[in-house]
Nucleic acid binder design. Structure first.
Lengths: 346, 346
DNA sequence: CTGAAAGCGCTTACAG
DNA sequence: CTGAAAGCGCTTACAG
C-alpha cells in the first residue's frame, strides 16, 4: 500500500519528463502535446498520484479557511448558525472547518492548540463555556477568535448574541396583549443546569425580560416562575414543577418556555392534565429552532437571527484577520416574534 | 489595513535577526535568549504577524483533512452523521471541512471543482442526488469520494446506507406482534417528492419492507398506503390523505411513518380527529432523528446507525486515499428498533 | 512543446 | 544562542 504518497517528482521521473510538464499535463493545459499528456496521465494514475492540496494552496495562495467549534449537544440551534456562517464564508471564498468539541480529549483548549498545524485563519466558538481558556489558547497560537454565545457572563472574546432580554420582554408583552394575565415561565433552575447550558446567562436574561413586561403591565406572578433543571435533556417526558402546579389546581393562562426545546415536555404535561393548547393554555417559546416546528401545535416563539449571527461572526473574524483589533464586547442582535398555532385565539 | 500579510521574513528583517531565530522565538523554543525572544515577539505583534497555517501544514506534513458535503435542508439526519464522521476522523488526526451544497452556486459539481485548491484529501457526499456528477467532478480533480445516501437508485460511488428494507420489515413485524392488523403507511408519493428527497429510493425500500412483513403475516392492507408528497416540508400542519381516511370513518390500528419527521403532522391529524396515541392508534417512525424525541408521545422508531455510518465512510475514504480501489457498491448497515411511548400498550 | 529555476511561507538539521 | 541553507510539493514566468 502506497508507502509514501507519490509526488509530482515521482511522476516526472517515471514518465521521463520535467516537473513542469507533469504539472501542465495533469492540469489539462493546452500547451502540452497530446502524446505527452496521455503518457503523464497514465503514469500518474499508475502511481496513484494525487496532488497535494496543501502545496497547491500554499503555491497559489488562494486558499483560506476558518474554524468553527461546535458544541457536543447532538442537536440544537448551533446548526443554523453553522450553516449561516458557511454561507457568509462561502461568499467570500473562505472554507470552513468544523470541530465538534467532543472529538478531541482535553476540551476546547487542546482542540485549539491542535489548530497550530491547520491552515485556518481564525476561530468561531459556538457556545463554548470558558471564554478565558479559549482566548488564552488562541493567543498562544496567534489565532483571532470570536464567539457566538449567550450563556457566558464573563466575556473575554468579541461575542455575538441575540438580545434575550428584549426578546423575552417582547414575547411576554405579546402574551399580555392577547389577554393573558397569569403567565408561567418554565426553565429557570440555574443551579441544576447541565453543562451544555454553560452559565445560563440567557436564562437569566429571558427571565428578566419576562419580569420587565409583567411589571410594566402591573402583573405579579412570581409564583409562576417554575425552576426546572431538566431543561436541555431531550428525553424528558414531563416537567415535574408544572405537573405539581397543575395538580394543585392552578392553571396559568399562558406558559412561556425559556427555550423551544422545553416546549415538548411542557405540552406533554399539559396533555396529561387534559388541557389543550391553545384553547386552555397558550404556550410560547424562544429560539425558533426545529423544536418549534415539530410540536403539536407548532410553537409561537422568538426567532434568533441565525443568518445575521453567522454573518456577523464571519465579518468580525475577517476584520480581525485583516489586522483590526476587535474590542471584547457583546454584539447584540434582535430576535423577532414568530406567531404560530400555540398561541392562537380560539 | 494590512496590505499583504506579514511573513516570517518581514519579522526577521524588522527585528534584525535570521528567519530561523524568529521561527524559534515565536514557537517558544528554549534555545533562544530571553531578550531575543522578547524583541521578536514584540516586532511580530507590532506587524500583526500570523503564521501561515498552509505553509506550516506543508512543511510539517502532518496535516490532513476530508471534506463533507452536506445537503441544504436546514435540519435532519445528516447532522448526527456529520458528527460521527468528525469523531472518526478526529481519532485519526484528520480534520473536516464542511461544505453545505447551497453555499456555492452551480451545485455540487462546482463545489467539488473548487476543492482543487483546498488541502483536502477526499470527499464524503451526504445525501447528494446526482452521484454521476459527483463522480465525474471528483475524478477530474483526482479526489476520492464516498457517499452516505439512501435515496439514489443508480450508484456511481461507494455508498453507505442503512438497511431500509429490513428495518421497515422489522418495524411492521413489531407492530403486528403487538396485535395490530390494519397498519397504515404514510409517505409514499414518489411523484411529488421535493428535491431534497432525491430519487426517494429509501421510500420504496421502506414500503417494500413494510409489505413483506404484511404479506408474511397474511395481512392485506394496500388501501392503507397513503401517498403524501408533503413529506419533508417541516411546516406541514396535517396529512391530507390521512385526514380523508379518518373522515371516511376508517381508523387504522397503527400508522407507520416513512420517516420520523412525518410523525408530527400525522399526530396532529390524529389529534384533530380526537384520536389519542397510543391508546387509539399506535404510531411508529423511521430514522430516530430528533423529531422522534420531540413529538408527544415520543416515537417508536428504527434507528439509523449514525455512528457506524460516519465511521465507515471515513474508513472507506482513508482506504481510498491509501491507494485502494473501492468498488462502487452499497455498504448496508442494520437499523435497530427503539421503543418509546407511541406504541405502548395501554 | 518542454525544462530548469525561482518561490509560496514555513521548520529543522547543520554549522558555527 | 544564532544564521544560512535545504526542502515540504506544487505552479508559473522565463528561456529555449
Amino acid at each position: 500500500m502506497a508507502a509514501a504518497r507519490a509526488t509530482l517528482a515521482d511522476v516526472a521521473r517515471e514518465a521521463g519528463v520535467g516537473l513542469a510538464t507533469v504539472s501542465r499535463a495533469l492540469n489539462g493545459r493546452p500547451d502540452v502535446s497530446a502524446e505527452t499528456t496521455a503518457r503523464v496521465r497514465e503514469v500518474a494514475s499508475a502511481l496513484g498520484y494525487r496532488p497535494s492540496g496543501t502545496a497547491r494552496a500554499l503555491r497559489r495562495g488562494s486558499f483560506s479557511a476558518l474554524s468553527v467549534i461546535v458544541p457536543d449537544s447532538d442537536w440544537g440551534w448551533w446548526e443554523p448558525v453553522l450553516r449561516a456562517a458557511a454561507s457568509a464564508a462561502g461568499e467570500a471564498g473562505i472554507h470552513l472547518f468544523v470541530h465538534p468539541v467532543g472529538t478531541v480529549e482535553g476540551g476546547p483548549e487542546s482542540l485549539i492548540e491542535g489548530l497550530a498545524d491547520v491552515p485556518t485563519e481564525g476561530v468561531i466558538a459556538i457556545s463554548v463555556p470558558d471564554q478565558q481558556a479559549i482566548r488564552a489558547a488562541c493567543d498562544r497560537i496567534g489565532l483571532p477568535v470570536v464567539a457566538i454565545d449567550d450563556s457566558t457572563h464573563s466575556l473575554h472574546l468579541p461575542t455575538v448574541t441575540v438580545d434575550n432580554r428584549a426578546g423575552a420582554r417582547a414575547m411576554t408583552e405579546h402574551l399580555i396583549e392577547r389577554g393573558h394575565r397569569r403567565i408561567a415561565f418554565v426553565g429557570a433552575a440555574l443551579e441544576e443546569l447541565s453543562d451544555s447550558w454553560g452559565e445560563g446567562l440567557f436564562i437569566e436574561e429571558r427571565l428578566a425580560g419576562h419580569r420587565e413586561a409583567l411589571e410594566a403591565a402591573g402583573i405579579r406572578s412570581d409564583d409562576l416562575v417554575l425552576a426546572w433543571g431538566g431543561v436541555g435533556s431531550e428525553g424528558a417526558e414531563i416537567v415535574p414543577p408544572l405537573d405539581d402546579l397543575l395538580a394543585a389546581g392552578t392553571v396559568p393562562d399562558a406558559i412561556f418556555c425559556v427555550a423551544d426545546l422545553v416546549a415538548p415536555p411542557v405540552l406533554r404535561t399539559l396533555a396529561a392534565h387534559g388541557l389543550s393548547v391553545p384553547a386552555d393554555v397558550a404556550v410560547a417559546g424562544f429560539d425558533d429552532e426545529r423544536a418549534a416546528l415539530l410540536t403539536s401545535p407548532q410553537l409561537t416563539t422568538m426567532r434568533q437571527p441565525y443568518d445575521d449571527m453567522g454573518r456577523l461572526a464571519v465579518d468580525l473574524l475577517r476584520r480581525a484577520i485583516a489586522g483590526e483589533d476587535l474590542p471584547v464586547r457583546r454584539h447584540t442582535l434582535p430576535a423577532t416574534l414568530v406567531e404560530r398555532k400555540s398561541t392562537e385565539r380560539s
